[in-house]
């Protein structure tokens, strides 16, 4: 079968691979890179479980071919936590009970990450809009919204303390 050579960076690590053009990016991440945190829920771009960050922007990994990620920098859920510490958004999901079965969570985290990188103090309505492309069947979203609000606050505090240390 024809394959195409690609190089990309995933969670800070460089990868080279030869992939069949039709291989979905979600399958490439899960199978070839052995990063199972990116979940596949519908494969038609509606549920959002496979949402990852590509060059900082949230994208559906099931609606891209791996060949299209050539040269890109991807962040999956495995790349959010640092060393042995949860990312502040992950921690906020934990504190606020923002997950039950956890299957939608990696996509939710990606959507939340993008939102908070563009808007440090979102309103609840902005949070709702940001996650409206990510379906959750467990939570009714209420505590996910709480979690993202809490995460925003944590990140603002961190930024403020970083800024004061740098000053």
């Amino acid at each position: 079968m024809n394959t195409t050579a690609i190089e990309l960076e995933v969670n800070g690590r460089k990868h080279s691979a030869n992939v069949p053009p039709r291989k979905l990016l979600s399958d490439f991440i899960r199978q070839d890179l052995a990063l199972p945190g990116t979940h596949v829920g519908c494969e038609h771009g509606v549920c959002g479980a496979c949402t990852i960050l590509m060059d900082g922007k949230a994208v559906r990994a099931c609606l891209m071919f791996a060949v299209q990620a050539d040269g890109a920098s991807l962040t999956t859920v495995e790349g959010l936590s640092k060393a042995e510490e949860l990312h502040p958004i992950q921690h906020a999901f934990w504190e606020e009970h923002g997950l039950q079965c956890g299957f939608c969570t990696p996509g939710m985290l990606a959507a939340a990450h993008e939102l908070l990188s563009e808007n440090t103090d979102p309103t609840d309505e902005e949070i709702r809009e940001a996650i409206s492309g990510n379906l959750c069947r467990c939570t009714g979203y209420e505590y996910i919204i709480d979690a993202i609000r809490t995460a925003a606050k944590k990140l603002r505090v961190t930024q403020a303390s970083d800024a004061s240390q740098n000053a």
Partner: peptide, 23 residues
């Protein structure tokens, strides 16, 4: 008490271990 869930940390980092993760 509203204790934080014991199950969550591994799930939050993508290591929950769902059926499609089994190889």
């Amino acid at each position: 008490q509203s204790m934080k869930r014991v199950e969550d940390p591994r799930i939050l980092v993508g290591k929950g271990g769902y059926v499609d993760d089994v190889v």
